[in-house]
Design a binder for these strands. Structure first.
Lengths: 107, 107
DNA sequence: ACAATAGTTAGATGTTTAGCTAAATATCAA
DNA sequence: TTGATATTTAGCTAAACATCTAACTATTGT
């Protein structure tokens, strides 16, 4: 949980995820979009891997990164839901689940 | 944007927000829920204030913090939506807005 | 085997962060 | 004014982070 938000707290990493939204890309392709060194990008990729937001697939010389949308969704929406935000409607009693009344502390 | 995710990347701060979900609370009340010093909590409050996730209201000796749900919602859901996550249905063509086809890079 | 290409590891530097204690500030009550 | 309460500021440490260059590993083409 913390790992996901930490990963998302960096603009470069957020843009990487956005780029991967369209299609999987190799580390090199992704790096070309940024004005930082390869090792720096490598570290960003590691952060995204550790947060499980991307999946790395090595093939030949290059490594292709794939977005793990479901992990992003679970983290983002799951957290949002603990605040009554998310899927359903807008004001008061219109919700699917009654926005509850129970104690739910986040990790 | 980065500020919000940065704020959310700390478990203590996430729990503070969760506590504030129920009702506004003073700095002292909030601090009582955590095993860290008051100055440390004060720093966490500052981070939340800077991210605009809470609103501080001084009255007398104490300062009452209020959750700014709308800011959390805008950040979380806004970001989620750039990935086609969020409000609407689950699989493919069921969405309200066609999940677009346009270039949207995050800040 | 050699060189080129794709990434990562190592090591250094400067910045940020979370935490602490001690001291300062502000408010209120006596 | 003196004291108690609530919170912040100052100053510190230790760990984590983002960044770099240089060197290394792995793969492929010649």
């Amino acid at each position: 949980m913390s790992g996901v938000f930490k990963a998302l707290s960096d603009p470069t990493r957020r843009r990487v995820l956005q780029l991967l939204r369209k299609r999987p890309m190799t580390a090199g392709e992704l790096s070309d979009h940024f004005a930082v060194s390869k090792p720096t990008m490598s570290a960003h990729f590691a952060a995204l891997r550790e947060a499980n937001l991307v999946h790395a697939e090595k093939s030949g010389k290059s490594i292709t990164y794939h977005l793990r949308l479901s992990v992003l969704e679970d983290a983002l929406m799951g957290f949002a839901q603990t605040f009554g935000l998310g899927a359903d409607a807008d004001d008061a009693q219109a919700e699917t689940k009654p926005t509850d009344t129970k104690e739910e502390i986040p990790s």
